[in-house]
Deep mutational scan, measured.
Amino acid sequence: IDVRFTVNGLDVTVRVRTEEIAERVKELAKNGVDWREIQRIAEELNK
């Protein structure tokens, strides 16, 4: 599942395995978490 969001004007796409992880990623993006941090968290959750 590809999750797309915009952080500080940057369009970011993170690929995740499940809808649940996708929701977590969207939540982080909404809360203004840095995209590199979101990427790292997504990689952890995908394991």
Score class of each variant (00 low, 15 high):
residue 1 I to T: 06
residue 1 I to M: 09
residue 1 I to N: 03
residue 1 I to H: 08
residue 1 I to D: 03
residue 1 I to G: 04
residue 2 D to P: 09
residue 2 D to Y: 14
residue 2 D to F: 12
residue 2 D to Q: 09
residue 2 D to M: 12
residue 2 D to H: 09
residue 2 D to L: 14
residue 3 V to G: 00
residue 3 V to E: 01
residue 3 V to W: 02
residue 3 V to F: 05
residue 3 V to K: 01
residue 3 V to P: 00
residue 3 V to H: 02
residue 4 R to V: 15
residue 4 R to H: 15
residue 4 R to T: 14
residue 5 F to M: 10
residue 5 F to Q: 01
residue 5 F to T: 03
residue 5 F to G: 01
residue 5 F to Y: 05
residue 5 F to W: 10
residue 5 F to I: 15
residue 6 T to I: 11
residue 6 T to A: 07
residue 6 T to D: 06
residue 6 T to W: 10
residue 6 T to F: 09
residue 6 T to L: 08
residue 6 T to Y: 08
residue 6 T to S: 12
residue 7 V to H: 08
residue 7 V to L: 10
residue 7 V to R: 04
residue 7 V to P: 01
residue 7 V to C: 04
residue 7 V to I: 12
residue 7 V to E: 05
residue 8 N to S: 08
residue 8 N to E: 09
residue 8 N to F: 04
residue 8 N to H: 09
residue 8 N to V: 04
residue 8 N to W: 04
residue 9 G to Q: 04
residue 9 G to E: 05
residue 9 G to C: 06
residue 9 G to M: 04
residue 9 G to V: 02
residue 9 G to S: 04
residue 9 G to P: 00
residue 9 G to I: 02
residue 10 L to K: 14
residue 10 L to P: 01
residue 10 L to Q: 13
residue 10 L to W: 10
residue 10 L to S: 09
residue 10 L to Y: 14
residue 11 D to S: 13
residue 11 D to A: 13
residue 11 D to Q: 14
residue 11 D to T: 15
residue 11 D to L: 14
residue 11 D to E: 15
residue 12 V to W: 08
residue 12 V to L: 11
residue 12 V to S: 03
residue 12 V to I: 13
residue 12 V to P: 00
residue 12 V to A: 04
residue 12 V to C: 09
residue 12 V to R: 07
residue 12 V to Y: 15
residue 12 V to M: 11
residue 13 T to N: 08
residue 13 T to S: 13
residue 13 T to W: 12
residue 13 T to G: 05
residue 13 T to P: 01
residue 13 T to Q: 07
residue 13 T to L: 12
residue 13 T to D: 04
residue 14 V to H: 01
residue 14 V to Y: 06
residue 14 V to Q: 02
residue 14 V to P: 00
residue 14 V to R: 00
residue 14 V to W: 04
residue 14 V to S: 01
residue 14 V to K: 00
residue 14 V to E: 00
residue 15 R to S: 12
residue 15 R to F: 14
residue 15 R to A: 07
residue 15 R to H: 14
residue 15 R to W: 15
residue 15 R to D: 03
residue 15 R to E: 06
residue 15 R to T: 15
residue 16 V to C: 14
residue 16 V to K: 00
residue 16 V to S: 02
residue 16 V to Y: 01
residue 16 V to N: 00
residue 16 V to E: 00
residue 16 V to Q: 00
residue 16 V to H: 00
residue 17 R to F: 15
residue 17 R to P: 05
residue 18 T to N: 14
residue 18 T to I: 02
residue 19 E to L: 12
residue 19 E to Y: 13
residue 19 E to G: 08
residue 20 E to S: 10
residue 20 E to V: 09
residue 20 E to G: 08
residue 20 E to M: 09
residue 21 I to Q: 06
residue 21 I to L: 04
residue 21 I to F: 05
residue 22 A to F: 04
residue 22 A to S: 05
residue 22 A to N: 01
residue 22 A to G: 09
residue 23 E to Q: 13
residue 23 E to Y: 09
residue 23 E to M: 12
residue 23 E to W: 10
residue 23 E to D: 12
residue 23 E to K: 13
residue 23 E to T: 11
residue 24 R to E: 05
residue 24 R to Y: 14
residue 24 R to Q: 12
residue 24 R to F: 11
residue 25 V to I: 15
residue 25 V to T: 01
residue 25 V to K: 00
residue 25 V to R: 00
residue 25 V to W: 01
residue 26 K to G: 04
residue 26 K to I: 14
residue 26 K to M: 14
residue 26 K to A: 09
residue 27 E to I: 09
residue 27 E to N: 09
residue 27 E to G: 07
residue 27 E to H: 08
residue 27 E to R: 06
residue 28 L to C: 04
residue 28 L to R: 01
residue 28 L to P: 00
residue 28 L to T: 01
residue 28 L to A: 04
residue 28 L to S: 02
residue 28 L to D: 01
residue 28 L to M: 13
residue 28 L to G: 01
residue 29 A to Y: 15
residue 29 A to E: 05
residue 29 A to D: 03
residue 29 A to V: 15
residue 29 A to H: 14
residue 29 A to W: 15
residue 29 A to I: 15
residue 30 K to L: 13
residue 30 K to C: 07
residue 30 K to F: 10
residue 30 K to R: 13
residue 30 K to N: 12
residue 30 K to W: 07
residue 30 K to S: 12
residue 30 K to D: 10
residue 31 N to Q: 15
residue 31 N to S: 14
residue 31 N to D: 12
residue 31 N to A: 14
residue 31 N to G: 08
residue 31 N to P: 02
residue 31 N to R: 13
residue 31 N to M: 15
residue 31 N to I: 11
residue 32 G to K: 07
residue 32 G to R: 05
residue 32 G to D: 05
residue 32 G to S: 07
residue 32 G to I: 06
residue 32 G to A: 08
residue 33 V to I: 11
residue 33 V to C: 07
residue 33 V to A: 08
residue 33 V to N: 05
residue 33 V to M: 11
residue 33 V to F: 09
residue 34 D to S: 13
residue 34 D to F: 07
residue 34 D to P: 14
residue 34 D to W: 06
residue 34 D to Y: 08
residue 34 D to V: 06
residue 35 W to Y: 13
residue 35 W to M: 10
residue 35 W to H: 08
residue 35 W to G: 06
residue 35 W to V: 14
residue 35 W to K: 03
residue 35 W to L: 15
residue 35 W to A: 09
residue 36 R to P: 14
residue 36 R to E: 14
residue 36 R to K: 14
residue 36 R to S: 13
residue 36 R to D: 14
residue 36 R to Y: 12
residue 36 R to L: 14
residue 37 E to F: 04
residue 37 E to G: 03
residue 37 E to H: 04
residue 37 E to D: 11
residue 37 E to M: 07
residue 37 E to A: 07
residue 38 I to Y: 01
residue 38 I to M: 02
residue 38 I to K: 00
residue 38 I to G: 00
residue 38 I to T: 01
residue 39 Q to I: 15
residue 39 Q to M: 14
residue 39 Q to G: 06
residue 39 Q to E: 10
residue 39 Q to A: 10
residue 39 Q to W: 08
residue 39 Q to D: 04
residue 39 Q to K: 12
residue 40 R to P: 01
residue 40 R to S: 09
residue 40 R to N: 08
residue 40 R to Q: 11
residue 40 R to E: 08
residue 41 I to G: 01
residue 41 I to A: 05
residue 41 I to H: 04
residue 41 I to F: 07
residue 41 I to N: 02
residue 41 I to W: 05
residue 41 I to M: 08
residue 41 I to T: 05
residue 42 A to D: 01
residue 42 A to H: 01
residue 43 E to M: 10
residue 43 E to L: 08
residue 43 E to G: 06
residue 43 E to A: 11
residue 43 E to D: 14
residue 43 E to S: 08
residue 43 E to T: 09
residue 44 E to S: 05
residue 44 E to C: 09
residue 44 E to M: 07
residue 44 E to A: 07
residue 44 E to I: 10
residue 44 E to L: 07
residue 44 E to R: 06
residue 44 E to K: 06
residue 44 E to G: 04
residue 45 L to D: 03
residue 45 L to T: 02
residue 45 L to Y: 06
residue 45 L to H: 03
residue 45 L to V: 02
residue 45 L to Q: 03
residue 45 L to C: 03
residue 46 N to V: 02
residue 46 N to Y: 04
residue 46 N to I: 02
residue 46 N to A: 04
residue 46 N to R: 01
residue 46 N to Q: 02
residue 46 N to C: 03
residue 47 K to M: 15
residue 47 K to G: 12
residue 47 K to N: 15
residue 47 K to S: 14
residue 47 K to P: 03
residue 47 K to F: 12
residue 47 K to Y: 12
residue 47 K to W: 13
